[in-house]
Design a protein around this nucleic acid. Structure first.
Lengths: 333, 333
DNA sequence: ATCCAATGTGGAATCGATTCCATGCGCAAG
DNA sequence: CTTGCGCATGGAATCGATTCCACATTGGAT
């Protein structure tokens, strides 16, 4: 592998001078510059970035920790991060935990070892031990999707999105609304969306039937099963009525629910209106197209990257950003 | 930032010794080891990986170049790569070209600059200039999805998958089959799948109507439009018949096509059978569930990573792997 | 008593860049 | 004629690790 030393010798100058033409810094005469550039060209020399990092203490690498790459949300966020960061000359080191919480901690250490300039964490949990670790490793970090005291973050307005969506159902005349949620340890998706739903119901003097509140996990089949539970529980209890609408906290859960409904011959939205969250691409093409909430994930990635950039350059750094959402009203409602 | 030198001083030993406990190599007495470990623990010292890399000439980083992260195929492949590589202690540097061919070349340089130990390229094109560059930078590289002479690769058996899928249609009694493809510069998806289709038709003495062969781009709407063209061209020409089946080279194109068909009141599979490629998750949940081809993308990622690993350690390295596929027969056919 | 191997430790070079400082030169100002 | 400044270049230290080699100690075999 050819090094700066080789180039220096071949061009009959010092390493210092080669470095100067490489970074065009300091004084370098036209002759010498040409000579050096020629040698670089001929040898195909490409400077070693990590040798540079050792000296400058900047790796120009940002670590991105995410729970899974297999969701549209993550994809979009990472795309956004990538777009913004590559403009600033940063690269992304990918840390995919595959939903393994322990790996989250491991990766923080690992990224420290790599001396990344910053970290973006697409978070699903905010456990104290994680927060502890984040502060301990002392690297600029921006969290996406969850907010924690003392840590920069970009979050979505889950609470108000859920309220507004719920209100939209109510305005359409729905009073009996079922809800398919996920575990509340996921504060954003599990807790806030549910709270938004409940609060809005209460604000409209509507009662929420306990048996219509189901908890699922993050996959399509789980949405199917949750929907089934809603309907079967409804028919077995003293209340004979079934809901006229259902809100699922993710599009995938909604898709699962729709599948169950169709199998039962329940028409959407005539017999049952439905909505999801996330604006995944497929929702546009479902039959009927699914009402959902667009969180502009790609923008979230961009914003987070920009925040991180500011933080890394110690400029103004807003601590927390809450992004806007957009209701996407379609025929399923 | 605390360094090995600090640790050495605090533990009253030499850097050499600290290095030895860090890597547990060579002889170190129990006392000293304990003492050093204690200091490391207290200071929270984490060794700098790139300083290490400078000396050892191994970064333990693999660059992954991909055209977009926003497809299930890429996601699965990257997940597979990640699983395999993280087991071997490698990290992934993500290079997302966003379908920009020039960036592909740029990233190759960039990864060289970073001195990655290897590269995995999820390829869409195999232009000579790219191949040239790949050979020039001289870093172990495995290509996924396209095969090129002299470059290691993991590819899918697109040709035979297409043939077998086509044969399945024929066996079901279909003779008039439309085809929605993409540009042939994408050799795997554009050329091979089409060739497989055509060859199998010919092998069964079936004619292929030119107007039923449409070219689309890689998105859902494009599948919709292509389907429309098939049907409208069919009805405007002298041949009054319309096909009884359609094969789309990706699931997304198939979904678009289905949307058009449903809008026209054409029933699937009664009036028109359809199939896609890729086994994207949603196909299971479509109505009717879509027949498709599963390429086991995640496995492809794993295999590529393993190939690369072998190459990097100069063990046996099979030049090319062609992966098996699996027909997923569902109600759309 | 001597020798050798195993064990334990440190000095110093090294990896490939950047950067501080010194030096030399030519030219204009004083 | 000196002084000083802009320009051009190189020497050498430095970043934080690893690793080769030298050296010291110990204990068992001969």
């Amino acid at each position: 592998m050819v090094t700066i030393k080789n180039i220096a010798e071949m061009a009959k100058v010092s390493r210092t001078t080669v470095s100067r033409v490489l970074n065009n810094s300091g004084y370098v005469s036209e002759d010498v510059r040409k000579r050096v550039e020629k040698v670089i060209e001929e040898t195909g020399y490409i400077p070693s970035h990590y040798a540079k990092s050792l000296r400058t203490k900047k790796t120009k690498i940002v670590g991105v920790i995410l729970p899974t790459i297999q969701t549209e949300t993550s994809n979009r966020i990472v795309t956004g991060i990538g777009k913004e960061l590559s403009q600033q000359g940063y690269e992304i080191l990918l840390a995919n935990t595959n939903l393994n919480k322990e790996k989250e901690m491991e990766y923080l250490e690992l990224l420290k070892e790599r001396r990344v300039d910053g970290i973006i964490l697409i978070a699903t949990n905010t456990e104290p031990v994680l927060v502890e670790k984040i502060k301990e490793i002392n690297i600029p970090l921006v969290m996406i999707g969850q907010a924690v005291d003392g840590i920069m973050s970009v979050t979505f307005d889950d609470y108000h999105a859920a309220r507004e969506l719920t209100l939209t159902f109510i305005k359409k005349g729905h009073q009996d609304i079922a809800f398919i949620g996920v575990d509340e340890t996921d504060r954003a998706v599990g807790y806030l969306r549910k709270k938004g739903f409940l609060d809005e119901m209460v604000a409209n003097q509507l009662k929420v039937n306990e048996e219509w509140m189901q908890k699922a996990i993050f996959d399509i089949d789980s949405g199917h099963d949750a929907m089934e539970k809603v309907l079967t529980s409804a028919s077995t209890t003293y209340k004979k009525s079934i809901p006229t609408a259902v809100i699922a906290v993710t599009d995938r859960l909604a898709i699962g629910a729709i599948n169950y409904l169709k199998k039962q011959g329940i028409r959407i939205p005539k017999d049952m209106a439905i909505a999801g969250f996330g604006a995944s691409e497929i929702t546009r093409y479902l039959d009927p197209p699914l009402t959902t909430v667009d969180y502009q994930n790609e923008k979230a990635g961009e914003v987070a990257a920009r925040q991180l950039y500011n933080r890394m350059h110690a400029q103004k750094c807003t601590e927390k950003v809450v992004l806007d959402y957009r209701l996407v009203l379609r025929k399923s409602l």
